[in-house]
Design a protein around this nucleic acid. Structure first.
Lengths: 349, 349
DNA sequence: CTGAAAGCGCTTACAG
DNA sequence: CTGAAAGCGCTTACAG
């Protein structure tokens, strides 16, 4: 996907702020020391006696000096920034993951470049390239649908630590944070079976490894309980609210009736809830529905959604921690975090 | 709130990537030209004949050259980055606004520093400072609750163009993108009144200008129809799903009964929908409910929510456009975008 | 403990 | 049309 080395004009620089004309040279003059001394003071070097340090800080304050981090980074060849690229911010799951990542990274002293690809591969390529040009210290990527499995290797070749999240990218050796999709859906399906349901649908989801894993969990639970897998009961659609609405409508029209379903994720389930409501049905009474993710909204949907909790926030934090560890120790072994799914039972079953 | 000039250690730089050892000097050597020529080629200068340009590009490609944007920016004293700081990403409204901002900015060739303050003033201060150190070409800020009205002036003093969004910050002269809160809620309330409702509640919202504006709209509509404003019917709570759930429960307990409500925003309305459901009530049949924002979810809630559409995405794009215009022309007149609210009627009334 | 010097990777006049 | 030189704001040996 990304072939050519990015030349200078990949992104055009614009907007020229004349930031602060005030440099350490001015501070040095004001304090009556050399600029190296100022530099040492700014990094709290023990070489500088307290008295001098005080004087320098005072001078800096007085003339309104602002540290120019980019100049420092350029000299040091270091970087304070990390890129986070997200495929679908419209889904609160990813928003919650992003929040976790960002919080952890800021806590660690980084600042994040955020880019939203909206599942667009070309855009993903563009932002990745631009993060490279910007000299990001690391990248966390939730790949857009269709991202080639060669991507992690490519980014590694760039010399930039990478953590991929949520969607795996083949069997290569890259750091990963996601959830145990198969087990999660297995648990959800099993719960429905244990509650006596025999005809259980699977709602929504777009072709890809994640969908495969989730459907595998669904099949396993079925098979284990000697319920035949019926492909007519798995309805795929884009993993969003419309998809959930649409597939639920279709599912309700199937005869013999199906009495329960597990949704690809929570927002698909929300769409399904909406479809149910339109037909005068209520989940938890007339139909049993399980979601996946446990986004914040799930606790207050109508009715509150039973779902598979993979703690989105925490997932984000783990992703950040993995990246940080990789940056600190580039040659460490491959790292993986798979959120262990927990059932959270509310009123939709 | 932000007093001291930020010194070097505000944020500690970490992670040192040894980016690309390959510079324009190497390209120059490979292509047999001087480094100035390479630089000119990279910026597509017409000074360089096509043949030379070809050769240089080929050399760059061959040896895997990567443009170092930060070095260029340092030399140019320009900046390619814009900071976006958001108070509450957990609310899909802000996520949608963010998406609009980011899309527009990336389109314009920028890359965005995103920070989530979670309504935390100290964090907001920290990230603003760090964006300053990073030399952001501009900032769009959705202020956390309690942000002092002096903030825009301060950022202006830094020499960084600022657009504040959604929540106003006093009467100062700063660029702003938001929505016409008063008129929006006025329309929503009026719609309820026209449908015959007399006792109409107001649900959720946290003290601040936005809440004041929205309640003003509510009062105006009431007064206009000669319905007495009853403070007992406005229930405030944090503007989230729990707040909506909680206030709706309280509202349902009021006697004489209230038959309709307008919510502070959509997620408050979602929480209210959930509370209604728990009591065996359905919005649109047993109760009339209006939201505010028209987030994506509103079309597929249970039941689909009637709300005030302020087009969150578009609002974000306008905010970005305003900032871009300010960067291009620092001395232009104050810019303001106020989304004109439209009623979108679905099934909750 | 402090100062002079070199250099991070670029761009931009200025000569030729 | 191309090359040598200076400089963006920092940091880091290296002398003193």
């Amino acid at each position: 996907m990304i072939r050519q080395p990015p030349l200078g004009k990949t992104l055009m620089p614009r907007g020229s702020t004349p930031p602060n004309a005030i440099t350490i040279l001015h501070v040095a003059a004001e304090a009556g020391v050399s600029k190296s001394t100022v530099s040492l003071v700014l990094k709290n070097s023990p070489l500088i006696p307290e008295e001098t340090s005080q004087r320098v800080r005072e001078a800096a304050r007085k003339i309104g000096y602002v540290y120019n981090r980019r100049a420092a980074e350029m000299r040091l060849k270091s970087s304070n920034t990390i890129g986070v690229v997200i495929n679908d911010l419209m889904n609160p799951f990813f928003a919650e993951v992003l929040i976790g990542i960002e919080r952890k990274l800021v806590e660690a002293g980084y600042i994040v470049f955020m880019a939203h690809t909206n599942e667009n591969l070309e855009l993903q390529e563009k932002v990745l390239l631009s993060m490279r040009e910007q000299n990001a210290a690391g990248i966390v990527l939730c790949p857009a649908f269709g991202t080639p499995n060669s991507l992690p290797k490519m980014v590694k070749a760039w010399g930039i630590p990478l953590t991929v999240i949520v969607r795996t990218l083949g069997a290569g050796s890259y750091d990963f944070a996601g959830s145990d999709n198969e087990r999660g859906v297995y648990l959800a399906t099993k719960h429905l079976i244990d509650a006596g349901h025999k005809r259980i649908g699977f709602l929504g989801g777009r072709a890809g490894v994640t969908l495969q894993q989730r459907i595998a969990g669904y099949r396993t639970a079925l098979t284990e309980s000697a319920i035949a897998f019926d492909p007519a009961l798995v309805l795929s659609a884009n993993p969003n609210r419309q998809g959930g609405h649409y597939t639920m409508c279709a599912l309700l029209d199937i005869r013999p009736r199906v009495s329960a379903a597990v949704a690809y994720n929570d927002i698909v389930a929300f769409g399904a809830l909406s479809a149910l409501g339109e037909r005068g049905l209520r989940a938890g009474k007339d139909f049993a529905l399980m979601g996946f993710d446990n986004v914040l909204d799930a606790a207050h949907s109508n009715p509150p959604l039973s779902t598979v909790d993979i703690r989105p926030n925490e997932l984000g934090e783990h992703a950040a921690a993995i990246l940080l560890a990789r940056i600190a120790e580039p040659n460490r072994a491959r790292q993986t975090y798979l959120a262990a799914p927990d059932l959270v039972l509310r009123q939709s079953v």
